[in-house]
Design a protein around this nucleic acid. Structure first.
Lengths: 226, 226
DNA sequence: CATTCCGGTGACAACCATGTGACGATTGGG
DNA sequence: CCCAATCGTCACATGGTTGTCACCGGAATG
């Protein structure tokens, strides 16, 4: 899936330049020309990163930054600030307000790309694995090692629980039997791939109605659907 | 219980030097060579202090620092930064981002120890762990080192008490045998994991009716249920 | 339409994880 | 110096768990 970036600037030339380069690099880009629009789009689209010009009419970059941080929906989106002022005070202020990086105009597109890439990479890395997975009435609690349906616990063996967890964590994506063997059983392929089938069967049997989430993709593997 | 320190550096010599000196001084030390590993270990082990080199490949110390501060699980762990640059800006930036102290290379091990000790003393003082845990009729009094059931004291050995305490403090969360060995026995894994079983058995025997709180999760570990 | 391929199913034997009792080593106090 | 307490390890029993297999029905394939 393409990573989405929101570019906020009031100068059409800058927008165009940045947009072109980011799209070239394979990102999905949307733009906003002022603070209000920026906040609205940030909330509705929850982009993976925001490129934000400090100099804007009405609401400047710092204010937008602050506003974004105050809203839970946007609080964690990394922000790259663009500014004409190279003064140190700006850098510190920007970082304090929650910007993740800083670029002073004039900047080269290549430099912008580098920063964006780096920040996105870092953010992916620090994304912490979720402790709970919830899909409708199905709840999987990792640290408690409990799965439940409509708040009623489901008795699962260790392997079944792990299998369910792995599938749920990769919801939507098909997992081949080999993939599952590697991730659930860990030591490689001493085990027959058909074993996965048996475990899927037992899992489906035990989780009852929640089995509708477990999809078989003939010829490929299994998939957890939301 | 030994205080645990996580040392993050990419240079093996530095790691070795720091690790040796800290262990000598009675701390339990784990190490990480890069940012991703550092974040992972910080979250999984929640050390009491982190020694962090600023100069690292990929993700530098400032970024790690910031990432640690953004996560509730690691936000309050004190950080001592190591850097080659003595520049003022670095110091200010580092402190702003949440480092608790600062050390410029080359530093003497004695100096590092002093800082670590000082910071830990300050932090321990202001942090008060719960002194009592109560679950129904079961009461665990940490400072008095006494457990009781319906106000009647339960005779426990030091190890049994610690085991019970660790489990109760993480009530609900499954603890693997390895995890328990690390936290209760402290020095790593010289001990057979089955030893945990034996101690659980003795513990259950002694606490009698309260044993209903001690749950076995087959294939995974043990869990304290409320 | 015939054939092949694939996944679901039930049974089963081997295995493994855990509870349990016992034993030797160590330690500290009387 | 001996005894009691504590601890780590081990062997054994047992019941749950697991991997495999044979069989079957339905889906693809030609």
């Amino acid at each position: 899936m393409k990573l989405r970036i929101l570019v906020v600037d009031d100068e059409p030339e800058i927008i165009e330049l940045v947009e072109f380069n980011l799209k070239q690099a394979g990102y999905a880009v949307t733009t906003a020309a002022d603070g209000a629009e920026a906040l609205k789009k940030a909330r509705s689209q929850t982009p993976d990163l925001i490129v934000l010009d400090v100099m804007l009419p009405e609401m400047d970059g710092f204010e937008i930054c602050k506003a974004l941080r105050l809203d839970a929906a946007t609080a964690k989106i990394p922000i790259v600030m663009l500014t004409a002022k190279a003064a140190e005070i700006d850098r510190v202020l920007g970082l304090e307000l929650g910007a993740d990086d800083y670029l002073t105009k004039p900047f080269s597109p290549r430099e912008l790309l580098l920063r964006v890439k780096k920040i996105l990479a870092r953010h992916q890395a620090e994304e912490k694995p979720k402790e709970q997975l919830r899909y409708g009435d199905l709840l999987i609690d990792l640290p408690r090692h409990i799965a439940s349906w409509k708040n009623k616990p489901i008795e699962l063996t260790a392997t079944e629980f792990k299998l369910l967890t792995i599938l749920a964590q990769r919801a939507g994506r098909v997992q081949s039997r080999d993939q599952l063997l590697r991730d659930v059983w860990e030591y490689d392929s001493l085990i027959d791939t058909r074993t996965v089938d048996t475990h899927m069967r037992r899992l489906r049997e035990k989780i009852g109605p929640a089995a509708k989430h477990l999809d078989t993709v003939r010829g490929v593997g299994y998939r957890f659907i939301e």
